[in-house]
């Protein structure tokens, strides 16, 4: 069985190799901090295996996460001069290789598709080939490895350091945003531990006007939207807003259709993800990957859609659900 943890080690190994390249790259004015940040991230990926199964103490990893946050937060990381091929060389490559260049690029989604649909059901000796529940993540990993081998053979590239260099300059340009989604997952856990949800629930219940079902719908949807925007994902907002308004008011008092109320409420939260830089993996990292000068470019493109869809969700919930 191919386990998800093996794949996390591979990611950790790639990050550690890239961090070694960063350390040796003197074009980066802050190479020590940069190498330390990505090295700690890579080491955390490997150490995380034993934290996840409970066999190692999580405190050292927590300290490493805070060190990473300080390194990036206080501007101790930087970028090197990217070693890209010049525009003429790229144009010449495009002419020479033609559409064959798409084969490895499309191999990533194609292999991910095969893993998610086909290999998911395949089992050898009673054991599934891919670890259950991790097929999507594993598919992406297997696809990336297959594509890399294909690409290196096709382009006659013998040195593994070349693709690693190319990949790490994308990492350097994404910078601190890479760690933010995982930091926010942690913040959600701490909020839950410290009882923030209960307090927000009490506050919402206090401001909620009695008797108006429509206003309760608006408060539930807008609350999901706002809380998701603050926390960067809807998963942290959902238990809070549902315990405060969704279940007690909309389902129990107003006898709403529970499935409809909760499904649409979650989607109102997703509208919040479209407008917040806190959802770094969806909004800030793409801006870095696409080399935009305005890191809020994707958010600006999504803003009108997000507000119209929030309105749609309020409408759908108040017409069909309650």
């Amino acid at each position: 069985m191919i386990k998800a943890e093996w794949f996390y080690w591979l990611v950790g190994g790639v990050l550690l190799a890239m961090s070694a390249q960063m350390l040796a790259d003197r074009t980066n004015p802050r190479r020590l901090g940069t190498a330390a940040f990505w090295g700690l991230l890579g080491a955390g990926f490997c150490y995380g295996t034993w934290v996840a199964d409970g066999s190692a103490p999580p405190e050292p990893l927590g300290a490493a996460v805070l060190v990473m946050a300080c390194l990036a937060g206080f501007g101790l990381t930087g970028r090197s001069t990217p070693r890209t091929a010049g525009p003429e060389r790229r144009a010449a490559g495009a002419r020479r290789h033609g559409n064959a260049l798409f084969v490895p690029a499309l191999a990533v989604p194609a292999v991910a598709l095969v893993c998610a649909v086909g290999l998911k059901r395949l089992s050898v000796g009673g054991q599934p080939v891919l670890q259950k529940g991790s097929e999507t993540v594993l598919g992406l990993g297997v696809g990336a490895v297959v594509a890399l081998v294909l690409g290196m053979v096709m382009l006659r590239e013998r040195r593994l350091s070349v693709p690693l260099h190319a990949g790490r300059s994308m990492l350097e340009s994404a910078g601190w945003a890479m760690l933010l989604p995982q930091m926010l997952a942690t913040l959600g856990a701490i909020f839950a531990d410290a009882g923030v949800g209960k307090q927000v629930g009490r506050l919402t219940a206090a401001v909620l006007p009695e008797g108006s079902v429509f206003l309760a719908v608006v408060v539930y949807c807008c609350g999901m939207f706002l809380f998701t925007a603050v926390m960067g994902n809807g998963f942290a907002a959902f238990p809070v807003m549902t315990a405060a308004v969704g279940w007690p008011v909309l389902v129990e008092q107003a006898h709403g259709n529970a499935a409809a109320v909760l499904a649409v409420g979650m989607l109102a939260g997703f509208c919040g993800s479209l407008v917040t830089p806190m959802a770094a993996n969806y909004n800030l990292i793409p801006a870095a990957l696409l080399e935009l000068t305005d890191q809020y470019g994707p958010i600006k493109a999504q803003l009108p859609t997000a507000f119209v869809l929030l309105g749609c969700n309020i409408g759908i919930m108040s017409v069909f659900a309650v």
Binding site: G48, A52, E59
Partner: peptide, 8 residues
Amino acid sequence: ADFGTGFA
């Protein structure tokens, strides 16, 4: 510990 498990 929360930061560690959250990351993992």
